[in-house]
Design a protein around this nucleic acid. Structure first.
Length: 245
DNA sequence: ACGTCGAAATCTCTTACCTCA
DNA sequence: ACTGAGGTAAGAGATTTCGAC
């Protein structure tokens, strides 16, 4: 925010352009409230509020994003503005805050997405490496079998160096599909894009994130949402890739 | 209990003004 | 001096909320 300011003349704050005044009774205090409506569109006397006024308004907004009528009157009186000006300031402030919040949330979602996409890519590479490894092992298993063909007693298993039994071809396919890599990743089908889509579910439910609201200034829930913790599943020990298992 | 109406509050979009680079 | 961009106070209309009947 640029720091510039013109200290308004007192008259400017009282007579901002040409106003018609409507006097109404405040429902809480019973005090008359002056509501001003502009007659003219060309307002030559528009002035920014003073730093002190802005400070007061900002600190009020910190504690509550909406002012009840009685408080609005008090604040207006305290800082020397019309109640309507205070109301409008809060209105504009809520709009600005919401817009900034949307920007923040977008940035956060973007970075979460990038992060997941990069993990996805590395897992994809790992999967390819494992598939390659599997192929090699199959070949190794196949060769001795061919050599032993007819010599052995129709053995269905081959013993590895670690003493583990590798099952015959007929069972092999199924067996490997149930194995997990060191990261707990099950061997996937070739259609990774389907998995990616179903995990993010962005196409199906684009608005589902938006419903995750969190209170804003003053504890209200009128505004947007926060995405903190959206992907933070460490608290329950759940790993995001467990989705695939 | 339910629907309707009106007033007030709020939201959203827009305009006009001001300042700065 | 002029200009365009960006911030902001305020206008205007739409929508929501709430109390009275």
């Amino acid at each position: 925010m640029r720091s510039y300011h013109i200290q308004p003349h007192k008259e400017d704050q009282i007579l901002v352009g040409e106003y018609t005044q409507r006097i109404m009774e405040d429902p809480y205090s019973g005090m008359p409230e002056v509501t001003t409506t502009k007659k003219k569109k060309n307002n030559k006397n528009k002035r920014r509020f003073s730093d002190e006024q802005i400070r007061s308004l900002e600190s009020m907004f910190e504690s509550e994003s909406r002012l009840e009528p009685r408080k609005k009157l008090q604040v207006a009186k305290d800082i020397g503005l019309q109640p309507r000006q205070v109301a409008i300031w809060f209105q504009n402030k809520r709009a600005r805050w919401k817009s900034k919040q949307l920007e923040r949330d977008y940035t956060m979602l973007q970075s979460n997405y990038d992060n997941l996409a990069s993990k996805y890519e590395s897992l994809k590479k790992e999967k390819q490496a494992l598939a390659f490894q599997l192929q090699k092992l199959k070949e190794l298993v196949k060769k001795p079998k061919e050599e032993d063909d007819g010599q052995c007693c129709g053995d269905q298993q081959v013993i590895t160096m670690e003493g583990e039994a590798i099952k015959s071809d007929s069972e092999e396919q199924h067996s490997f599909s149930m194995e997990r890599s060191e990261h707990g990743l099950g061997v996937l089908s070739d259609d990774d894009s389907t998995i990616m889509t179903s995990y993010f579910e962005l196409e199906q439910e684009p608005t589902s994130f938006i419903t995750m609201v969190e209170p804003g200034p003053g504890g209200d829930d009128w505004h947007s949402f926060e995405t903190d913790g959206l992907f933070d599943q460490s608290s329950n020990g759940y790993q995001w890739w467990d989705f695939w298992s």
